[in-house]
Design a protein around this nucleic acid. Structure first.
Ligand SMILES: [Mn+2]
Ligand SMILES: [Mn+2]
Ligand SMILES: [Mn+2]
Ligand SMILES: [Mn+2]
Lengths: 229, 229
DNA sequence: ACTTATGTTTAGATGTGTCTAATCCTTGGT
DNA sequence: ACCAAGGATTAGACACATCTAAACATAAGT
């Protein structure tokens, strides 16, 4: 059996590989998990002994196929829980991340199945993140492009939003920027601030926020105001 | 912060005090928690340092008011979870105990509130055990008397059933012995086996099972077959 | 009152997850 | 090709939760 700490390391490596590419350095992982570098060194060492990561000293670490499967399972738990909490327990999308982080390591396979069933096996969680299927095939995490990579006058559809900062999520909900929203970039300031038009309202988003929003180019069939199911 | 192991010790002491009276001996607690006696000695020692138990060497241990409050909170979590799993996720009452045992240490106060709300603040869990109120006043755990303390021809109403043995629960559900059931004792064998009449069906219960069922004397207003809400 | 059985505690060890301080690689700048 | 800076690992420590083996206290039995 794996400890929840080990599961958190694997999940962190999974996210960092997705966002920044393998291999992941010791200090990056230490920063992300809020522990010291020597702690990471010893932990990834035991993960390697269990065959869950490949590691090259002084280089970094990456998931093996087994390690990725564990990570994907934890991610499935996390995103199913986030969806369940919003759909059935009336949580706000800005509140669910921490709760899911605590529960994801402690639910049974039976609980996972029943929650998925109660939700009707959804494809994405409240932030637009793909929910891995029960067979634990790694989902496509690469949908869309970062909002800060686009320029003025582009008409874009919001695909997903980072779920890690509750304040940011509360602000975005207020601004109407949620998965499915169609927006148009009206201005990009030199220091990266992006101003967008959401259904007639102008919203200014700091670069750090714009970077955490993933979008696709809006097609004609994307209505600008429609609330999606 | 308390570890989940510490919470489990406090919950165990709470249950053992209820069933067997304080103080609780080291080896009894060791048996109940499936650890060795020295492990218990060192654990209760640190619980005493935190002011959660009173302890007299070579005598035993009992909860302080603070310790009881922690125990009652864990019990509230446990029983709310059991109720939620049966009511909203279609679990059988025989399956919920282990799931609740794992989750009870990891839910937030917010989650506790929302689950209680979704259930309409129930008084009892699926096994008839009282759910402590949010202010954590110790509930009355003494309702009813043990079925094995009654004799032939007594007409009794089932108040609660132990939730710890899944097989036993499955059997009892099949036999129709659930909280609210009215039954009549038709025979008590010398070795403790109790035979009861449940709505015309005869059911034989070994002494160990009879001991884990708590009942009250049925009144005229207790219909023999009615399923309670 | 003595002795023994039972139950409890102490002593000492292990594994996990973490830390700080010290040492050791690797690499980019000159 | 050298060296300094930054990042990574090793060394040594600590808290927690657990164990086995040994010593000890209490309670019962004679
Ligand atoms: Mn986590
Ligand atoms: Mn999410
Ligand atoms: Mn537990
Ligand atoms: Mn119960």
């Amino acid at each position: 059996m794996l400890s929840d700490v080990m599961e958190d390391y694997l999940k962190a490596i999974y996210y960092l590989e997705r966002d920044e590419g393998a291999p992941i350095g010791t200090s990056r992982l230490a920063e992300y998990l809020d522990v010291t570098a020597p702690t990471v060194t010893s932990m990834v060492d035991s993960l390697e002994e269990r065959g869950l990561v490949d590691r090259e000293k002084y280089k970094g670490v990456e998931l093996t196929a087994d390690g990725e499967t564990v990570a994907v399972e934890v991610v499935r738990h996390h995103r199913l829980l986030e969806a369940y909490l919003t759909e059935h327990l009336d949580y706000d999308w800005s509140e669910v991340h921490d709760e899911a982080d605590a529960l994801e390591h402690h639910i049974s396979e039976e609980f996972e199945r029943r929650v998925a069933n109660a939700l009707g096996d959804p494809e994405v969680d409240p932030h637009g993140d793909p929910i891995p299927s029960p067979d634990l095939t790694p989902p496509d995490e690469g949908t869309g492009t970062r909002l800060d990579e686009h320029g003025e006058n582009e008409r874009l559809k919001v695909e997903r939003v980072s779920d890690r900062d509750a304040d940011e999520l509360a602000y975005l909900q207020d601004a109407g920027v949620v998965p499915g929203t169609v927006l148009e970039i009206t201005d990009v300031a030199p220091f990266g601030m992006v101003t967008v038009d959401v259904d007639g309202d102008e919203q200014s988003l700091p670069e750090s926020v714009a970077r955490s929003i993933r979008v696709s180019v809006a097609t004609d069939s994307d209505e600008s105001v429609v609330e999606e199911a």
